[in-house]
Simulated scan of single mutants.
Amino acid sequence: MPTPLPARPRLITFDTYGTLIDWDGALRAHLHALFAERAQEADVAAFYRRWYHGYALPAVHGRFLPYRELLATTMAEALAAEAGITAAPAELAALGDVMAEADPFDDSVETLRLLGAHVPLATISNSQRDIIDVSARKLGDPFRHVFTGEAVGAYKPHRALFELVLGRAGVEPHEAVHVAQSQYVDLPRSVPMGIPTVWINRQGQELRPTTPAPTAQLPDLRGLPELLGLGRAPQGAAR
């Protein structure tokens, strides 16, 4: 059984990309441009899924690479194997900048502001510090703690990032709440560790049989303050 939500969390941790920042949309737009420049028709959404599940996800389980390098390496492999494209070094290097410059979802900034008035916030991210620093500014710099994979030499779902943020904040797993979109790298670790977990299911996914069930599920962030007993976010929150 998933750990119940605390009456009042002492820490709220967030995954950033896909949960707070529309990284998927930004990357798909970048890929559309890449294919269009070559006058090559492609189902970008299908290519994106093949890249993510066939190349990027396996890479986060493998030998640690800085995230910009991981993006460039896996995308180069996917483009060559799936589309017959040899990408230029500059196109691959730009992927980290695309990630950094991606916009917040419409509900992110105001929800974080409301929650941060009551509880310390943190983010643990499969990214890189120079990338997430840009994203944090776009989100209004709401985080007391910011940790990326390079801090521990491992990416989620490894437990090291979760242990690091809990240790630095001085809270027990059941006293925190983890908020995340990914059922591939977040839920498989936070739930078994006994961290109450809210799945932000923006894509309307079905939970895989092998993914542990979260404590709660929401379609976006707007209901999160009320769910946690920390107020109610206004409808139509702006970026």
Rank of each mutant, 00 (worst) to 15 (best):
P142E: 13
A122S: 11
L187Q: 11
D133Y: 00
L121I: 10
A237C: 11
R113D: 09
K156S: 00
L20V: 05
F47Q: 06
A136R: 14
Y52K: 07
V60R: 00
P6K: 15
A80C: 08
R232G: 00
Y48M: 10
L218R: 07
E91K: 01
L221K: 07
A102N: 08
P4G: 11
L228A: 03
P157A: 08
V98L: 01
V165P: 01
A180D: 02
H30E: 06
R38K: 13
P66N: 07
R129L: 12
A36L: 13
A122W: 01
G96R: 05
G153W: 00
A93P: 06
Y52N: 12
L227Y: 12
G54E: 08
L207F: 01
R113L: 04
L95H: 03
L71T: 05
E91V: 06
E175N: 08
A238K: 14
R189Q: 13
L79D: 07
T86F: 04
T19G: 11
H178R: 10
T215M: 09
E175L: 13
H178T: 02
D141V: 03
D107Q: 10
T73I: 02
S125E: 01
F143P: 03
D43P: 01
L11P: 03
H53L: 14
A42F: 08
G194A: 14
R129I: 10
M193K: 06
A7I: 06
A56Q: 09
G140T: 04
A78C: 11
P2R: 07
E37D: 15
P173Q: 09
L121A: 07
T73D: 13
R8W: 05
L71Q: 12
N126Q: 06
Y184M: 01
M75V: 11
T73P: 07
A45F: 00
G96I: 00
V179C: 06
T74W: 03
I200E: 01
P9T: 12
T123K: 01
N126W: 00
T13Y: 00
V60P: 11
L31T: 00
P173K: 06
G236W: 13
L161Y: 05
A93Y: 02
Q235K: 13
G167T: 14
A176V: 11
G223T: 08
P212M: 02
E110N: 02
L71W: 04
N126A: 09
T3V: 15
P188T: 06
A216Q: 12
Q217F: 00
V177E: 03
P104G: 13
M193W: 05
N201W: 02
V198A: 04
V191C: 12
L227K: 05
A7M: 08
V191L: 05
D106A: 15
L114V: 09
R10T: 02
H118C: 12
R113Y: 02
H178G: 04
I195P: 03
L218E: 10
D130F: 15
D107R: 10
P9I: 14
V198I: 13
T16C: 15
E41G: 10
R38S: 10
T16R: 03
A78L: 09
P212G: 04
R189W: 04
K156R: 10
L121Y: 04
P89M: 08
R239T: 15
T86A: 15
D103P: 05
